[in-house]
Amino acid sequence: MLRDRTDTRATLWRIASGQRGFFTAAQAREAGYSYQAQHYHAQRGNWILVDRGIYRFREFDSLPGSEDDHLVRWALWSRGRATVSHTTALSVHDLGTANPSEIHLTVPSGFRQKDSAVVLHHADLASDEIEERDGYRVTTPVRAIVECAAARLDQDVLDSAVAEALDRGLTTRRSLLHAAQQFGARAELGVERALREVT
């Protein structure tokens, strides 16, 4: 039975709407678009080719975007396995003065994809270390601070992130210290230094 074109578009639109207009070739295929139809829509400009096998509906591209729209693209690139982390996560949470020039993603230990546009960190994250966002996942404020401390982030940036997290009630001193101790000596030292700076 042939699928109605309107139904096919509506199905894909529903998927893309939860991903800020982005979708994969595989998702389009599941919605009912053949690879030939996908090529046609990209050629006509109905879909914008963002990366190999990743598209975005043209209508979303003309809407005012959010600063983190591009993070959805990386979630799709990783097939939903990457979590935004480290300084990129601090930026998402608007903590401190972090202004990363690179996108940091934490991926499971068996993850093999690579791209020069991202910095990959391998770790198996627990569910309580992750927050779901619209189209992507990000490490919690506590996890982001601790992993930045372990990575020897500039202490001034770490200090400002810790101060803001405490000020906004996102965590407590005790929770931060406990998480840092679980992460290792380097993380613990960075967090202790930051806590000493908080008045």
Rank of each mutant, 00 (worst) to 15 (best):
A75F: 15
H41G: 03
W47L: 13
G53T: 13
Q36C: 12
L90R: 01
R81H: 07
E30A: 15
G80F: 11
H86S: 02
N99K: 02
W74Y: 15
V84F: 03
R44V: 09
A31T: 14
G65E: 01
G80S: 11
Q38W: 03
H93G: 09
T88N: 07
S85T: 04
Y33T: 03
A82H: 07
Y55W: 09
Y55Q: 05
F57D: 09
Q36T: 15
V72Q: 10
F60W: 13
D68V: 00
R56C: 06
R73Y: 05
P100K: 02
H70D: 13
V92R: 00
S101P: 04
T83D: 08
R56W: 01
Q36K: 15
D69P: 01
G80K: 12
D61W: 12
L49K: 15
W74D: 05
V92Y: 01
S66M: 02
E102Q: 08
V72P: 07
N46E: 09
G80R: 13
D68Q: 06
V92N: 00
G65S: 10
P64K: 05
S85A: 15
S85L: 07
I48D: 12
H41K: 15
R56S: 05
R56F: 10
R44G: 08
D69K: 00
I54G: 12
V72N: 05
G96K: 06
H41F: 15
R79G: 11
T83G: 10
T87A: 03
V84Q: 01
D61C: 11
W47Q: 04
F60L: 09
S34C: 11
N99T: 06
H104W: 09
D51E: 14
R81S: 12
N46T: 14
W77S: 07
I48H: 14
H41A: 08
Y35W: 14
S78I: 10
R73D: 03
L76T: 03
I103T: 12
F57K: 08
N46H: 14
T87N: 02
F60K: 04
P100I: 05
H41E: 13
S34Q: 13
Y55F: 15
A37V: 08
S78F: 08
T97N: 07
A89S: 08
W74V: 04
R73M: 07
H39Y: 05
D69W: 03
I103N: 02
Q38L: 12
E59N: 12
T88G: 05
R73P: 01
L95R: 04
V72M: 07
H70F: 06
G96L: 06
P100M: 03
